[in-house]
Computed example of a mutant assay.
Amino acid sequence: MSGAAPLELGPALLHCWPLPQPGIDGDKEKRGHVLVVAGSAEMPGAAILAGEAALRAGAGKLTIATAASIAPLVGVAIPEARVIGLAETAAHGFQSDSARRLAEVAGKADALLAGPGMQDEGSCVELVHHLLQRCSGIPVLLDATAMCAVHPRGEPHLLDDAVDWEHFRFGTPVLLTPHAGELARLTGGVRRNIEQEPHGAAQAAAERWNAVVALKGATTVLAAPGGTLWQHQGGNAGLGISGSGDVLAGIIAGLLARGASLEQAAAWGVVLHGQAGEQLALRCGPLGYLARELAAEIPALLRILASA
């Protein structure tokens, strides 16, 4: 692992790393199509938060695949989206034919986000691995339960198949967005140790899985498989609220659909998310603003950061 100091994520760095911009005559197709696979009967809001954030980040088209029981609710909440209802398992996951149903739209998407609000780890891992096969040519972000695709510790029966989980690596890098607790569970490590040494933990995970890892926390660390590290220390305590991570994942997915690389989308997404929290803290106070309010701050912040 590289011993280089991490690069500080902030307006100055992002100014030198501009996002892809559509032309003046660019339509929704030119701005990218995001496929968000998210939500469950008990957590419909995760799909809504992530989907809206993807659009606020500038994506042109949005398809949300979610549990059939909540699909009408999600469609009403985000009328801009196409919503696909997937049959559910008894544990509130998606049934095994879901990958087949999503094959056509996955082939037309420019970015895939999977995981926010998903339940039933077994069915989630199965679906993610099928989607990875169908989405090999587009950027993929795995969040929340979908990150168990690297090692489904909660489902021992999944370890009996042909996958060598202890040495699993993505053939093509994907983006993972764990907090310290999630990374501890995925690696078998200790959360406190990860919190004390986030740079080393993020870089080790990036090398281990051939993934870009955004380790979320008071200091968020972004690590690429090649050894490059970034860190961000902005934001405030108010961002530690239910749904905040779903918004961050959606922002990053929207930037991926616009043509940003995994590293660039994660870097911009982390800074935008942190600055959205800072803007809300100025108006509402440092605690008590809601995750659903973050996405509306993103368009103006994109303009400000692009000209900083």
Rank of each mutant, 00 (worst) to 15 (best):
P44F: 04
G45H: 01
G45C: 10
I48V: 15
L49N: 04
G51S: 11
A54I: 01
R56H: 09
A57D: 03
A68V: 09
I70Q: 02
P72G: 10
V74F: 11
A77Q: 07
A77T: 00
P79I: 06
P79C: 12
I84N: 05
L86Q: 06
G93D: 05
G93Y: 02
G93T: 06
Q95V: 02
S96G: 02
D97W: 02
A99T: 06
R100V: 14
R101A: 14
R101T: 00
L102I: 11
L102T: 11
A103G: 03
V105W: 05
V105E: 09
L113Y: 07
G115W: 08
M118N: 01
S123A: 15
V125M: 11
E126V: 10
Q133M: 10
Q133A: 15
C135H: 13
S136P: 06
G137V: 06
G137Y: 07
P139T: 06
V140Y: 08
T145W: 08
A149K: 05
V150T: 12
H151E: 04
P152K: 14
P152S: 10
E155Q: 13
P156M: 03
H157A: 13
L159Y: 04
L159H: 13
D160A: 14
D160S: 15
V163P: 00
D164Y: 05
E166K: 15
